[in-house]
Computed example of a mutant assay.
Amino acid sequence: MEFLTVPFEASFVFRALLAGSLAAVLCAGIGTWVVLRGLTFFGDAMSHGMLPGVAIAALLGGNLMIGAAASALVISFGVVAVSRSSRLSQDVSIGLQFITMLSLGVVIVSHSGSFAVDLTAFLFGDILGVAWNDVLIIGAATIAGVLACWILHRPFTALTFDERKAHTLGMRPGLTHIGMLALVALATVTSFQVVGTLLVFGLLIGPPATALLMVQGIGRAMTVAAAIGMAQVYVGLLISWYAETAAGATITLLSGVTFLSILAAKALLCRVRLHTVNDNDFQ
């Protein structure tokens, strides 16, 4: 059984496991609200729309996380502003922000003669290049995100399932919605530099969606999602070590495969139960 632990004896793989596991916990809590609230498209737009800020920061020699945070603020403000000032649905606003910011980022990258921003690194990150400072940053963000999900559990629940009731109870759903968007930004901005935007989005959506197929209750779904996410990080790093595949992409692939497998198993189980019930009725 040594093959299950040998890769993690390397310090850089062990740091990758820690960073990925912390990101999985952070994304599990926030991602559950994203899935329940129907903000999946916003999560995608946020993760990819950070490219302009990252590109500008890289070209100027600045901090990539600050650039990503600036783009996240622009996207969040733009989504809220367009939704409130027009009769268009929020999906339209998110789609416009997504395509505009992503296109702007590609234009900036292509205009730079040196192509200082590596799009592959932006998408998949460099989880095997994680430093201890990165682990500490993700750890602090995880603590903040988990506390925010716990403190805001009641208003988030009211907003998700009955926005009118939330307004009646004086929970100020508008501010609650902005708070939810801010948490999505926290997860993507904090984690992208380490694990890449695709892995952030995979952890933000995959494990929570899978957990909601398996259990009922928001708290239990968050716990199961965190466990699934950490398991995917571990197994993904293990596979990438022995198969010599890209670590970030392998973990992201597992997120989708896990969801589809659980979905197929649940559908098969429902058919078996239905067939059993029909046989009993016939007898």
Score class of each variant (00 low, 15 high):
residue 2 E to R: 05
residue 4 L to V: 03
residue 6 V to A: 05
residue 13 V to L: 00
residue 14 F to R: 09
residue 15 R to A: 03
residue 16 A to V: 01
residue 18 L to P: 05
residue 22 L to D: 00
residue 23 A to S: 05
residue 23 A to F: 01
residue 24 A to E: 01
residue 26 L to E: 00
residue 26 L to V: 00
residue 29 G to L: 03
residue 32 T to H: 02
residue 35 V to W: 02
residue 36 L to H: 06
residue 39 L to W: 09
residue 40 T to L: 11
residue 41 F to L: 03
residue 45 A to F: 12
residue 46 M to I: 04
residue 54 V to Q: 12
residue 59 L to K: 07
residue 60 L to R: 12
residue 60 L to P: 10
residue 64 L to R: 15
residue 65 M to L: 15
residue 68 A to L: 08
residue 75 I to C: 13
residue 76 S to K: 09
residue 79 V to I: 13
residue 80 V to I: 10
residue 83 S to Q: 13
residue 84 R to V: 13
residue 84 R to L: 13
residue 87 R to A: 10
residue 88 L to E: 12
residue 89 S to C: 02
residue 90 Q to G: 05
residue 90 Q to R: 11
residue 91 D to Q: 09
residue 94 I to T: 05
residue 95 G to F: 03
residue 95 G to E: 03
residue 98 F to L: 03
residue 101 M to A: 12
residue 102 L to N: 10
residue 103 S to D: 06
residue 104 L to T: 13
residue 115 F to I: 10
residue 118 D to Y: 14
residue 121 A to G: 15
residue 127 I to D: 00
residue 127 I to F: 01
residue 131 A to T: 14
residue 139 G to N: 00
residue 140 A to F: 02
residue 145 G to A: 11
residue 145 G to W: 01
residue 145 G to N: 06
residue 149 C to K: 08
residue 151 I to D: 06
residue 152 L to N: 15
residue 153 H to W: 09
residue 153 H to S: 08
residue 155 P to F: 08
residue 157 T to D: 14
residue 163 E to S: 15
residue 165 K to I: 08
residue 168 T to C: 08
residue 168 T to L: 12
residue 169 L to G: 12
residue 172 R to D: 14
residue 173 P to G: 07
residue 178 I to N: 11
residue 179 G to F: 09
residue 184 V to S: 11
residue 184 V to A: 12
residue 186 L to K: 11
residue 188 T to L: 15
residue 188 T to N: 14
residue 189 V to H: 12
residue 192 F to K: 04
residue 195 V to R: 02
residue 198 L to Q: 07
residue 199 L to V: 13
residue 199 L to Y: 15
residue 201 F to H: 13
residue 202 G to D: 04
residue 204 L to A: 04
residue 204 L to P: 08
residue 205 I to L: 09
residue 207 P to C: 07
residue 207 P to E: 05
residue 208 P to G: 02
residue 213 L to E: 10
residue 215 V to Q: 06
residue 215 V to F: 07
residue 218 I to R: 14
residue 220 R to S: 13
residue 222 M to T: 07
residue 224 V to K: 09
residue 224 V to G: 09
residue 225 A to M: 00
residue 225 A to W: 04
residue 226 A to I: 01
residue 227 A to L: 05
residue 231 A to S: 08
residue 232 Q to N: 07
residue 235 V to R: 00
residue 238 L to T: 03
residue 239 I to C: 01
residue 240 S to R: 04
residue 242 Y to Q: 02
residue 243 A to S: 00
residue 245 T to G: 01
residue 247 A to C: 02
residue 251 I to N: 04
residue 251 I to Q: 02
residue 252 T to Q: 02
residue 252 T to P: 06
residue 253 L to G: 02
residue 255 S to P: 00
residue 259 F to R: 06
residue 262 I to M: 08
residue 268 L to F: 14
residue 268 L to I: 12
residue 275 H to E: 15
residue 276 T to Q: 10
residue 278 N to Y: 08
residue 278 N to P: 00
residue 279 D to F: 00
residue 279 D to A: 00
residue 280 N to W: 13
residue 280 N to C: 12
